[in-house]
């Protein structure tokens, strides 16, 4: 068969090989082949940039394109569902620590990824404050609660929420906060993704609840009062069932 080896040769050209590899299959000039190669790389860069807008904004277009191309070379997509592409991008940036890039970039990538995961998570009804109205006050402490499936709790050594949000939604650079550590709540209670930096006691409470600890003990261990729980409940971070 004349096309034997065609796909291997073409794919190798797409992955950076010379157009000579496909010359045997060409019925005319080779000038059009690089169009495919360029378009494959460009679309991978675009998709990754769409999935990581804050990383793109903080890196600058040129730096981001180089980083995204290197990532594509190491980790090309495996299927056509592009919303999932780049799930390992934060770890890749952390491992490669590209020259001239801000050191907070891996954590910024984790925040972008958390946004995507919350956006695409399965739908689930939230536990409304009203649903707890019938619970006897003395039984509240025994409740175990399930986090809404969209809840993500990315953590970083520095306070990055404000910098991330400004870069992602406004393309504006805001200096990273103090090195005090921060947990961000990213979730989608209805059809819109929300995000806010958590108080340390709120983060501790959610960790306990996520581990299946009953509300009373969870609050005690987290060192928080009922008002922290009420605020999270009103935010819609718990699943109804």
């Amino acid at each position: 068969m004349r096309e034997a080896g065609f796909h291997d040769c073409f794919a190798s050209m797409l992955r950076g090989g010379d157009t000579v590899t496909v010359a045997a299959f060409a019925g005319g000039t080779l000038t059009g082949f690089p169009v495919y190669r360029n378009s494959v790389v460009r679309s991978a860069i675009e998709v990754l940039g769409d999935n990581y807008p804050a990383v793109r904004a903080m890196s600058g277009e040129g730096n981001f394109a180089a980083l995204a191309k290197a990532y594509w070379t190491a980790h090309p997509p495996r299927d056509g569902v592009m919303a999932h592409y780049g799930s390992g991008f934060a770890d890749y940036i952390a491992a490669e620590s590209p020259l001239g890039m801000p050191s907070i970039l891996p954590d910024i990538a984790r925040l972008d990824r958390a946004w995507s995961e919350a956006h695409l998570a399965p739908d689930s009804a939230i536990l409304s404050p009203g649903a707890l109205a019938g619970v006897e006050p003395e039984r509240l402490a025994d409740l175990t609660l399930r986090l809404h499936p969209s809840v993500r709790l990315p953590r970083s050594d520095r306070a990055l929420h404000a910098s991330w949000a400004a870069a992602r939604f406004e393309g504006r650079m805001v200096k990273a906060g103090p090195e005090s550590g921060e947990t961000v709540l990213v979730w989608r209670p209805y059809q819109e993704v929300r995000h806010r930096a958590l108080e340390p006691v709120e983060a501790a409470l959610l960790d306990q609840l996520a581990a299946g600890v009953a509300l009373g003990l969870a609050a005690e261990r987290a060192g928080c009062g009922i008002e922290s729980f009420i605020r999270l409940l009103k935010d819609g971070v718990f699943a109804r069932d």
Partner: peptide, 16 residues
């Protein structure tokens, strides 16, 4: 798609 990699573009084939 080829050998488990998705190329994200519509690539030509020889009409054989």
């Amino acid at each position: 798609r080829h050998d488990g990699i998705y190329y994200g573009d519509l690539l030509p084939l020889p009409y054989t």
